[in-house]
Design a protein around this nucleic acid. Structure first.
Lengths: 106, 106
DNA sequence: TCAACTATTCGATTAAAGTGGAAATATGGA
DNA sequence: TCCATATTTCCACTTTAATCGAATAGTTGA
């Protein structure tokens, strides 16, 4: 992953509502959650919610799955994992080389 | 760390120029790099660079150290480590519970 | 097919972020 | 002190993000 791709992912998560949505979906696992449930749980108006779901989808951080008239959104763990790898490498590489201890970096 | 704090950090990094600055500083280690050098290396006009350094500083992702008439900026590994911990937990908790394998998550 | 329901798009508005030239503010050396 | 250099602030401008009511579009069951 290079800078631009990482920025897209970071930007998608760098928004309170979207981060809340994503965290909620992470907890739900692969089955995900319908738009209505997400909106109820987080108290977000439909239009606003739809906007943010689109942003997260565009970044490939969540997936949509239609089921009847409901749409289930679920977290895309692979994308998130890729971002984490990128960040871990770009946070800790120098510190590792210098044998420094850096809290939180593995 | 809760949502709001994470959003501040993510937003600080969710910008191409700032991410480039931060990555550059991560590689420099504790000694850091002067504003002028950063500007030369990444080809950023002074005013723009100053703006972004301020943003990163505000998020506590970088530290400033004056030395003569130069200011050395360096990456704050602790802050970044904290963000990584937050993201790791909020990416992988559900997957871990479900015993799923999630690439990039540890 | 139509009524009820779920979700998205449209469109108008407001707020915030990013850019960079020019002026101002440090700092140290002559 | 005065000049050169380093960095920041000021300011005007452009772009992009976020919000959400209302209208629209799919979907299903009656």
């Amino acid at each position: 992953m290079e800078n631009k791709a990482a920025v897209t992912l970071l930007a998608a998560l760098a928004q309170e509502t979207r981060l809340a949505i994503f965290r909620l979906l992470v907890v739900q696992g692969v089955q995900g959650m319908t738009v209505g449930k997400i909106g109820d749980k987080l108290d977000i108006p439909p239009a606003t919610l739809s906007f943010h779901l689109k942003e997260l989808t565009r970044a490939n951080l969540i997936d949509a799955r239609q089921e009847g008239r409901f749409i289930h959104y679920s977290a895309n763990y692979e994308t998130m994992g890729g971002l984490l790898s990128f960040m871990t490498e770009n946070c800790c590489s120098a510190a590792t080389m210098a044998n420094q201890e850096v809290s939180g970096c593995s």
